[in-house]
């Protein structure tokens, strides 16, 4: 049971970013490897508000959402839109480069020293033999609300329907008079806010430093691929699967193999079910 609690807590951290990643893929059909850098940026934004400005962590979280949304929307305008029409591989490489740029910008302004939120460290709540930390409870709750809200936005609102229409067939959406560019920007803002949220959640567990972007990149992408690229709910389930796989690896195998879990998941999914858990198979002509 403890494994379930731990896996949930680990999954909750990367799940919002995995949903953001899949949303980007849905709209533009490329893998944005700068996802880890956006998450790291969110962590630094939350830290700045929480520690430098001395405001509560929830205020830091809101700042992280805003900074994440702004940075992703800006990077879309300045970096990816001018390259629209290029292959997915080109955009993937550009996103890796962007990741290094963002990491070094943060290093320039904040230095390389690690940082932590102003959050007292406390012991767990005990329910029988089960240990649950207050932080894990908060992280799982916030992450769950964010994912459900995103799902509701995509399925129940006009902007959600527009986003899905643009993702499904950009040309058709354009012909039908939808403002494709603006809708894509809204999509990027939502994805950016989700990256910012993951940044705040990851900062609760990890030391915040510019290097953390690469620590989260592979698990986030593996979760999105497992769930099926283009499926936000799948990405959340993928995060859960990665969380479980990592917990079980540490408990029953050597912890040093934990880093390989994300890669293994990607390989197995691509071999056995390339469309992922909830993705839809696409015939390419």
């Amino acid at each position: 049971m403890q494994v379930v609690v731990n896996a949930l807590a680990s999954a909750a951290i990367i799940a919002p970013a995995a949903v953001g990643f899949t949303l980007t893929f849905m709209l533009f059909r490329y893998a944005n490897f700068a996802v880890g850098a956006f998450v790291m940026l969110g962590a630094f934004a939350a830290w700045t508000v929480n520690v430098t400005a001395g405001l509560p962590l929830w205020a830091g979280g809101i700042a992280a959402l805003a900074i994440g949304a702004m940075t992703v929307a800006l990077s879309d305008r300045l970096v990816f839109r001018p390259l629209q029409g290029r292959t997915g591989a080109t955009l993937l490489l550009v996103s890796v480069a962007l990741s290094f740029v963002l990491e070094n910008v943060i290093r320039f302004f904040y230095g390389s020293q690690i940082k932590g939120f102003d959050l007292p460290l406390t012991g767990p709540l005990m329910i029988g033999d089960l240990r649950i930390t207050r932080e894990a409870l908060a992280v799982v709750t916030i992450s769950g609300i964010a994912i459900l809200s995103t799902a509701a936005l995509l399925t129940l609102t006009p902007i959600g329907r527009a986003l899905r229409a643009v993702a499904d067939n950009t040309s058709l959406a354009d012909v039908r008079g939808l403002p494709v560019g603006s809708i894509q920007t809204v999509g990027m803002i939502i994805a950016g806010a989700l990256f910012g949220l993951s940044g705040t959640l990851v900062g609760i567990d990890l030391a915040i430093d510019p290097g953390l972007s690469w620590a989260v990149t592979i698990p986030i992408i593996a979760a999105a691929i497992f769930g099926g690229l283009g499926s936000p709910l799948g990405a959340a389930l993928g995060a859960l699967a990665i969380g479980f796989a990592e917990e079980l690896t540490v408990m029953f195998l050597a912890p040093a193999y934990k880093g390989a879990v994300g890669f293994m998941v990607i390989v197995v999914v691509l071999l056995l079910r390339p469309q992922g858990l909830l993705g839809v198979a696409v015939d390419r002509k």
Binding site: A9, I14, D205, V216, P255, K258
Partner: peptide
């Protein structure tokens, strides 16, 4: 353990 990972809970 691997030094760069998203969680050290386990």
């Amino acid at each position: 353990y691997n030094p760069n990972q998203p969680s050290y809970r386990a």
